Structure formats: structure tokens, C-alpha cells
Amino acid sequence: MHLVSIAMYVTSQPLAEATAELWSFLRHYLLEAGLKDLPEKLDQAVRYDEAWLRPDLLLSQACGYPFAKSLRGRVRLVATPIYHHPGCDGPLMRSFIIVAKDSALHSLEDLRGTTAAINGPDSNSGSNFFRAAVAPLAR
């Protein structure tokens, strides 16, 4: 049985449901193309980054940064998402710095001395973009 793990961005129930629907769609077309031994459901037990180099891997998902940094030449890129979120342009994504709706913090400078959370140090949109946004404010 092939490993299919497209869980890099599955952090909430709506995303988990959308990802399961995506796999159902992909599975249908892969079966039609003659592939066999495809799992009916996505693997939830293997961490997304542990799946990337497994010999039984058929399909996984990676952010562009880990792909460029450590996966290029070791796995084959088969698709790039096209984003329809405001501010995104095709395969170009966008990051957001979020504060509470009623917060008195309105600019990056206002955030000096507060605590930030990122989704992962190997994320371009979640870490590198954040670093690039705050670096000019460093003292």
C-alpha cells in the first residue's frame, strides 16, 4: 500500500475535511489512470515531514522552503497550489500577522516586546516572511 500524507496544513476541522475531499478527488483520478494499492483515507499517523522521504511514499505536501532547502532532487514536484485568497496571486501566497480584534496594537512597531507564534521554523510563509517583516525594526 502506498503512503499518502498531505497533512502539512491540516490544523483545523474545515481544513481536514477539505484535504480529505482533495484526496478523494485525486484518488479517483489516480485509480482511473491505473494506479493500484491506493489508500482510501489519508494517513494520519505519520508526521508530514517524516513522510517526505519514505520509500513507500506516493504523494505528500511540502512548503516551498523545505522543498527548496532539503527535498529538491530527492522527491519529484508534481503540482503547485493556486491560491484564491485575497492578496495571493496564483502560486504566490501571503502571510498574516494577527492580533485580537479589539487590540490596541495596529502596527509591527506596536508589537515590539510582545510574543509571536509561528507555524514552524521551516515555513517560508510562517517564519521567513515574518522574519523579513520584523527585521527592519530590529535595534
Rank of each mutant, 00 (worst) to 15 (best):
residue 99 V to T: 15
residue 42 L to D: 07
residue 100 A to H: 12
residue 90 G to F: 04
residue 63 C to A: 13
residue 50 E to S: 01
residue 64 G to K: 12
residue 50 E to Q: 07
residue 35 L to E: 12
residue 40 E to Y: 15
residue 37 D to L: 13
residue 79 A to M: 04
residue 42 L to S: 06
residue 105 L to I: 00
residue 55 P to Y: 12
residue 74 R to K: 06
residue 46 V to D: 04
residue 53 L to D: 11
residue 74 R to W: 02
residue 69 K to A: 11
residue 59 L to G: 05
residue 23 W to E: 03
residue 54 R to F: 03
residue 76 R to F: 00
residue 87 G to V: 02
residue 90 G to Y: 04
residue 85 H to D: 08
residue 64 G to D: 15
residue 89 D to K: 09
residue 102 D to I: 03
residue 85 H to R: 09
residue 79 A to T: 06
residue 96 F to E: 10
residue 43 D to E: 12
residue 65 Y to A: 00
residue 87 G to K: 07
residue 33 A to F: 11
residue 103 S to K: 02
residue 52 W to P: 05
residue 46 V to T: 08
residue 58 L to K: 15
residue 57 L to Q: 14
residue 48 Y to Q: 08
residue 52 W to F: 04
residue 106 H to L: 13
residue 80 T to W: 08
residue 26 L to S: 08
residue 71 L to P: 06
residue 40 E to C: 10
residue 87 G to W: 00
residue 98 I to E: 05
residue 52 W to T: 06
residue 54 R to K: 10
residue 104 A to N: 10
residue 98 I to L: 03
residue 38 L to P: 05
residue 42 L to W: 11
residue 98 I to M: 00
residue 25 F to V: 07
residue 38 L to R: 13
residue 36 K to D: 15
residue 91 P to W: 14
residue 99 V to N: 09
residue 52 W to A: 04
residue 48 Y to V: 03
residue 37 D to V: 10
residue 58 L to M: 13
residue 41 K to H: 13
residue 47 R to D: 06
residue 80 T to E: 06
residue 74 R to C: 04
residue 72 R to I: 06
residue 46 V to M: 04
residue 43 D to G: 14
residue 25 F to E: 13
residue 96 F to Y: 10
residue 49 D to R: 09
residue 56 D to W: 14
residue 34 G to W: 14
residue 49 D to K: 12
residue 26 L to V: 10
residue 88 C to I: 03
residue 75 V to F: 05
residue 106 H to E: 11
residue 104 A to I: 07
residue 52 W to L: 01
residue 81 P to K: 00
residue 55 P to T: 11
residue 70 S to A: 09
residue 39 P to D: 15
residue 103 S to H: 07
residue 19 T to G: 05
residue 49 D to N: 12
residue 91 P to Y: 15
residue 65 Y to R: 04
residue 48 Y to K: 02
residue 21 E to H: 08
residue 87 G to H: 00
residue 54 R to H: 09
residue 80 T to L: 09
residue 40 E to S: 14
residue 87 G to S: 05
residue 71 L to Q: 03
residue 32 E to W: 10
residue 51 A to E: 05
residue 83 Y to L: 02
residue 69 K to G: 10
residue 62 A to G: 09
residue 96 F to I: 00
residue 34 G to E: 13
residue 82 I to W: 11
residue 56 D to I: 08
residue 78 V to E: 02
residue 97 I to S: 00
residue 90 G to P: 04
